[in-house]
Every structure is written in C-alpha cells, then in structure tokens.
C-alpha cells in the first residue's frame, strides 16, 4: 500500500492542505475531502463535463486529473464565484434566461460561461458553442444556455 501524500491547493481563494492517495482523482478530493458538492461525476472519462472546474485559469475536467498532479494549483468552483452572497453576472444571466433545468450540469456551465466572459469577451456564437460542447446538457437544448452566456456578457459589460 502506497502511503498517502499531502498536496496544497488554493481552492476558491483559500489555501488548503489535503492528504490524498496516489491514485485519487482530483474530482473525488474536491467532492469528498473538500466538500465541494457542485463538482459532479457524470462519466469519469471526460465525456460529459459535469466535473468541470477552473484550474490555474483553464477550464479543466477534474475527473481526468490526478489529485497529486494538481499540487500547488489554484482552483475555482461555482462555490467560489459568489462574492458576499451577491450573484455574479453569469449566475444572474442563467436565472434570467432560464439557462438550467435539472441543474446537474449547471455548475459546469456557469463556470464555462464565467470563463468565457472573463477571458474571451469578444467570442462569437460559434466560439461559444465550441466551448459549451465540452459539457453535455440533456434538458435545455442549449439555446437558453447560449442566451445566458450572451446575457452574462451584457450584464458584465454594463457593470464595469
């Protein structure tokens, strides 16, 4: 039995030190050891995208990352978006545009949308769809998610 290892993560702005097994997925550490239940497992093979997080500024499927690989990383989940209880532009837009139904994929989409408006504010619809492709939503038919991304950008531009 290999001994567990200690890794350091900055999760949603807070420094954390966690003991992990060498074969443990980052997804499982976030859910089971850091209690971030917004990070969901849907397939464990990088197909469905419900485990998406932002890791070191990049959209990342946390089921495909070993926890030990993430040592020293900065991680954002949906729990970390909300500052002082006030919804972000993205969250407001998803509510306003009915951009969610069952909600299982929603934390992932909120992060993708947040990443788009922060990093690619001029993204075309085609580029937005390409990024949304990384996550599966079986409920909405994607239209209202796409509308929510566009709306989030408007809200953010209006607020800055």
């Amino acid at each position: 039995m290999v001994n567990s290892l200690t890794i350091r993560l900055k999760v949603n702005g807070t420094e954390k030190s966690v003991n992990v097994e060498p074969n443990e997925r980052l997804l499982d550490v976030l859910r089971n050891k850091l209690y971030l239940s917004s990070v969901k497992a849907g397939c464990l093979r990088g197909e469905c995208g419900t485990c998406t997080i932002i890791m070191n500024g990049k959209l990342t499927k946390s089921c495909l990352v070993l926890a030990v690989e993430a040592d020293g990383s900065e991680i954002t989940t949906v729990e970390g978006l909300t500052k002082g209880g006030e919804p972000t532009a993205t969250q407001k837009a998803f509510i306003e545009k009915f951009g969610f139904q069952c909600g299982f994929c929603t934390p992932a989409y909120v992060l993708v949308a947040h990443w788009i408006i922060e990093n690619m504010p001029g993204a075309t619809d085609k580029e937005i769809k390409e990024l949304l492709n990384a996550v599966i939503c079986r409920c909405t038919g994607y239209k209202q998610i796409l509308e929510a991304v566009r709306r989030a950008r408007e809200i953010r531009e209006g607020s800055t």
Binding site: S38, V78, T82, Q91, I95, F100, G103, T106, P107
Partner: peptide
C-alpha cells in the same frame, strides 16, 4: 430552484 446555479442544490 436557483440553488442550482450557486452549486448548493
């Protein structure tokens, strides 16, 4: 059910 967009559903 907006808890779904805040990650606490």
């Amino acid at each position: 059910d907006v808890s779904k967009v805040f990650g606490d559903a």
